[in-house]
């Protein structure tokens, strides 16, 4: 459904992505792992054109876009088929929870207002926040804000939702509620690409893991392959630093 081919991206002569390709099928839950600075977040942002990659192609079903020559219309088309969940939520501060969810429907997709409200209410109830519809972001906890952000993402019914470290800005006791919502979405068959450090989520929910380091994909495979039988040394190294802690927690 979604395919990225040979994505390159540099910031001030520092090459962050050195030709990354990934493929996402409908219903996939793909988790991208890797040490910080490996280019995971940049890759995700390039899909949604929040960063413009220097080189590469994006295939979205029948839509084929060369990133370097992508027109504003192409960008808009891709953005309307994807949704993005940010590390620091980025809820619109001047809108209530409900308005945050309806905004993309009404303004960007011209959905009639009553219909948009109905969709938004459903989305908020799915993330368990029906009782917070009229709260402004400043009155919500971090976990609640992130759940509203997820509702905002699912409301526009995108083909794929991109999650950029959705729990890393949260206090440990609040990550659970966000991960629970994400698991629920995965169970319903929502296609997701997730950058995260939550190993339990990666192992239990993902059907495909991509391990990145230094701007390239080191290896990819099923969670079982990556966690139990990693082939590359760098993957082993990375997991050995993270997994003992995780095993202990479980």
């Amino acid at each position: 459904m979604l395919e990225l081919k040979n994505i390159h991206k540099s910031f001030n002569n520092n090459e962050v992505l050195k030709g990354v390709s990934i493929r996402v099928k409908k219903g996939d839950v793909i988790v991208i792992l890797g040490p910080s600075g490996s280019g995971k977040t940049t890759l995700l942002r390039c899909i949604n054109f929040l960063e413009r990659a220097d080189k590469g192609e994006i295939f979205f079903d029948d839509l084929r876009v060369n990133i370097r020559t992508a027109s504003p219309a192409d960008i808009s088309r891709i953005r309307k088929r994807t949704a993005f969940v940010f590390q620091n939520y980025n809820l619109f501060n001047n809108k209530t929870a409900l308005e945050n969810v309806t905004e993309g429907l009404i303004t960007a997709r011209k959905v009639p207002k009553p219909e948009a409200i109905e969709i938004a209410k459903k989305a908020l109830s799915k993330v368990g926040l029906s009782d917070r519809e009229n709260y402004y972001p400043s009155k919500l906890s971090g976990g609640q804000q992130q759940r509203v952000a997820i509702a905002r993402a699912i409301a526009v019914n995108p083909d794929v939702i991109l999650f950029d470290e959705p729990t890393s800005a949260l206090d440990p006791e609040l990550t659970g509620e966000v991960l629970a919502v994400m698991k629920q979405l995965a169970r319903e068959g929502v296609t997701m690409v997730v950058v995260t450090h939550e190993m339990s989520f990666a192992r239990d929910v993902a059907n495909h893991i991509v391990f990145m380091d230094g701007g390239v994909v080191i290896e990819e495979g099923s969670p079982d392959e990556i966690f139990s039988r990693p082939r590359e040394d760098r993957t082993k190294q990375f997991l050995s630093r993270i997994l003992p802690v995780w095993d202990y927690v479980i």
Partner: peptide, 26 residues
């Protein structure tokens, strides 16, 4: 915050929409 603009673009708003509905009111 720059994230406000990014969030608006990410849900498919145009730059003008993002400014008039999200950035300028704030």
């Amino acid at each position: 915050n720059k994230g406000q603009l990014e969030a608006a673009l990410s849900i498919g708003m145009s730059a003008v929409q993002a400014y008039t509905r999200i950035i300028i009111p704030q």
